[in-house]
Design a protein around this nucleic acid. Structure first.
Lengths: 212, 212
DNA sequence: TGGTGTGAACAACTTCACAGCG
DNA sequence: CGCTGTGAAGTTGTTCACACCA
């Protein structure tokens, strides 16, 4: 809620990771953890963790550490993850189907609520319990009804921009783009690109460049 | 080949993007481009692009710009992408199957050469032309025969560390990890994590935090 | 005592601004 | 003349080191 100074983008990404680790620790019945221990698990510097956290408040106890359960909750709140979010799939191909059936999302509060495609053969199909394929034309209506907050684009590259335009027109402000295209969207819409070939490229560079 | 000073990690990631854009431009028969134009397409600063490139040489022509085709080639070389790389899939689930059938990898020089699983029902299955599912026990042999350089882990989270251990034992130095786990590997093995829930988290944070 | 919270030093990265060259 | 290549300035993010407190 409160946004005191400006928080580094990198901090936000790390909070997400801390959260995941804390969730694991809860399962292992760890109740308290120091910044040094958490840092070790996450592979970052201990001061980094403390600084990341103090952007949002004081969560620790001096001489003791952090209560795992409480910290997990606090970070969730900071990230805005204390409620379920409805997600729509746009583009029902192999990748899209795989993502819908991927368990992990549900565990983390993300709910596939609908899917969309332009291929008539796919309309009406049920991809998973509660996930029916609609025609793209119905996106505005269904998005409103199902309170969709995030769209995942898994269309072919050539269709991605047009899909994005229609997603934007339907009032959805968050897009995860799996198509290998740079999307053009208004300033108030946030796009995250997931480009697997870029990840490969990066891996290859580091494999064949001895520097670190 | 030559590694003069130290190149920022961020530069490497951007080079990958420039390459993709240049590839598009070639298709569109654009022969020359200025740093300003390229910057505009990629959504970065023009000086940034010029600086990124000069870490590796002088590729431009003053008063003119860069030859698209040549620059594309040069970046490929810098990134070590001037040859095909063989990739193995480890963990044959929905996601794994989708990745194998994903066209885009092939276009960018990545070749799925084999797949591995522990489930006897899947052994022997052909996922795509040339991609046969082997048992994990055969990983060392097949990896050597097929000259696998990169492994993709798409196992369940619980199996990911053990899969990684076997990948490392087989002498593979690059891992793309889709399982939601922090992997423990030796220093000379490079792991890239693709965590989709982390991407979601980030998106949500920015959606509900007016700051930029 | 031991670990957090944090100003201050440091390091990394980005942008500016302009000299220099095609 | 226009656009690259690049030192220098500016900005952002990380680590140190220690005061402070449970």
């Amino acid at each position: 809620m409160a946004k005191p100074p400006k928080v580094p983008e990198a901090t936000i990404k790390r909070l997400s990771i801390y959260m995941r680790v804390l969730k694991d620790l809860i399962k292992k019945d760890v109740t308290v953890i120091s910044s040094a221990e958490l840092a070790d698990i996450c592979g970052v510097n201990a001061a980094q963790i403390r600084k990341d956290l103090t952007y949002f408040g004081e969560f620790g106890i001096r001489g003791v550490g952090y209560y795992v359960n409480q910290l997990h909750l606090d970070i969730r709140k900071v990230l805005g993850l204390n409620q379920r979010r409805n997600v729509a799939l746009v583009g029902v191909g192999n990748l899209g189907r795989a993502l819908v059936s991927y368990r992990n999302f549900g565990d983390h509060g993300y709910n596939f609520a609908a899917a969309f495609d332009v291929n008539p053969d796919r309309i009406g199909e049920t991809l998973a319990p509660g996930v029916v394929v609609h025609h793209m034309d119905d996106l505005p209506r269904v998005a409103a009804e199902q309170e969709i907050e995030i769209a995942i684009i898994t269309t072919p590259a050539a269709a991605a921009q047009s899909a994005a335009d229609r997603i934007v027109a339907a009032g959805i402000k968050g897009i995860l783009n799996f198509a290998p295209t740079l999307l053009q969207v208004p300033d108030d819409v946030r796009v995250k690109r997931v480009d697997l070939t870029t990840e490969f490229d990066n891996l290859v560079y580091h494999l064949y460049t001895r520097s670190r």
